[in-house]
């Protein structure tokens, strides 16, 4: 009886996700043993701050990946959107609520732009989003006149948005952003698995022709995948602004790889059709843990880039091997 329940639990969580959870625990234990300073509470705070924006981007990019595409524009996009948001507050004197809406709105607009080009003009997603990656990279500084972005600091008007992610009470920092993340992970899981848009996005990645033959307007839902990605890049831009006080225009290239890496480690197939938001969540946890933990055991920060690269190549190699095996069997 217990064994049967155990098995069904394993099946419900999924083998790959269990492996990630295992790896997470082992790594966490390893870092804690290897480094005394890792064991501090502040490490968790550092890790969570980094995790917020990668997590949000990663949740978003899961959708284009599920259609068999990709969105490379989110990395430079995050920077662009948050710089524009800061411009709205600083130069135009708008309330922060408006800035947040504009930030997210820009993300949605770029996502829509990508989606239309991919779904209607049928350009390869990677080249389309590469182009929009370049475009948003320049767009941020053009729109704001090349100034770096600064969102309200603690104590200033509108600094409440930082409380969305971190609350300091009596000198102790609480990573309340995790609550937000967990809510979003739950909501997006439901969207993916229990709504039509999620269903059709999965179907596009699985067999777009079959979906079209079933009389579904596939292009419309295909665009939605990129809109999701852009929307979450907008959210990530706010999280980014909440983490860093100064945002330099023209940066951000490479962030998208961490996000894509998180999704792929979490079991989202590069070829589309299968994947989960929970998996993405766990994948980002793993990447964040590695990136925060490794410096504690003496690896320079620059190793992080190499690690990202290695993780992605490994994850995609595994994904490809699995795919080929499935096709052969």
């Amino acid at each position: 009886m217990t064994r049967a329940t155990g098995k069904s639990i394993i099946k419900a969580i999924g083998t790959q996700r269990l492996v990630i959870i295992g790896v997470l625990i082992v790594l966490f234990a390893f870092f804690s043993i290897a480094s005394e300073s890792f064991r501090r509470y502040t490490t968790l705070i550092t890790m969570s701050s980094y995790m917020y924006y990668i997590m949000l981007m990663s949740i978003g990019v899961t959708f284009p990946l599920l259609t068999g595409g990709v969105d490379l524009s989110i990395g430079t996009g995050v920077i662009c959107y948050s710089i524009v948001g800061s411009f709205i507050i600083r130069q135009m004197g708008m309330p922060i609520g408006v800035a947040m809406l504009v930030t997210i709105g820009m993300g949605v607009a770029i996502g829509f732009f990508n989606g239309v080009i991919v779904a209607k003009l049928e350009l390869p997603p990677f080249i389309t989003t590469l182009c929009s990656m370049m475009i948003v990279r320049g767009l941020g500084s053009i729109l704001t006149g090349g100034m770096s972005g600064v969102w309200p600091m603690a104590g200033q008007d509108g600094s409440w948005f930082r409380d969305l992610f971190k609350v300091t009470i009596d000198g102790t920092i609480y990573p309340v952003g995790m609550v937000l993340i967990i809510i979003l992970v739950t909501v997006m899981s439901i969207v993916l698995n229990h709504t039509r848009v999620g269903r059709y996005i999965l179907a596009i990645g699985s067999n777009k022709e079959a979906l079209k033959l079933s009389g579904v307007n596939a292009a419309r839902w295909h665009i939605m995948a990129y809109v999701f990605s852009g929307f979450f890049a907008g959210l990530a831009a706010i999280a980014y602004a909440g983490t860093f006080s100064n945002i330099t225009p023209g940066t951000g290239a490479g962030l998208e790889l961490d996000a894509i890496g998180g999704a792929i480690i979490g079991g989202t197939a590069m070829t589309g059709g299968s994947g989960s938001i929970i998996g993405t969540f766990l994948g980002v946890c793993l990447i964040s843990l590695l990136k925060t933990g490794l410096p504690y055991i003496g690896l320079q920060a620059n190793w992080q880039q190499i690690i990202t690269g290695a993780i992605i190549i490994t994850a995609v190699t595994i994904d490809m091997a699995r795919n080929r095996k499935q096709r052969a069997g």
Binding site: M270, W303, I306, G309, A310, I313, T317, M320
Partner: peptide, 23 residues
């Protein structure tokens, strides 16, 4: 030889190259 998509492979290598240079 491993049939990885070229764009993701080369993006990963891009990160590796940046890291190796810095290190």
């Amino acid at each position: 030889f491993r049939h990885l998509p070229s764009f993701i492979t080369s993006m990963a290598l891009m990160q590796v190259a940046k890291g190796v240079g810095s290190i």
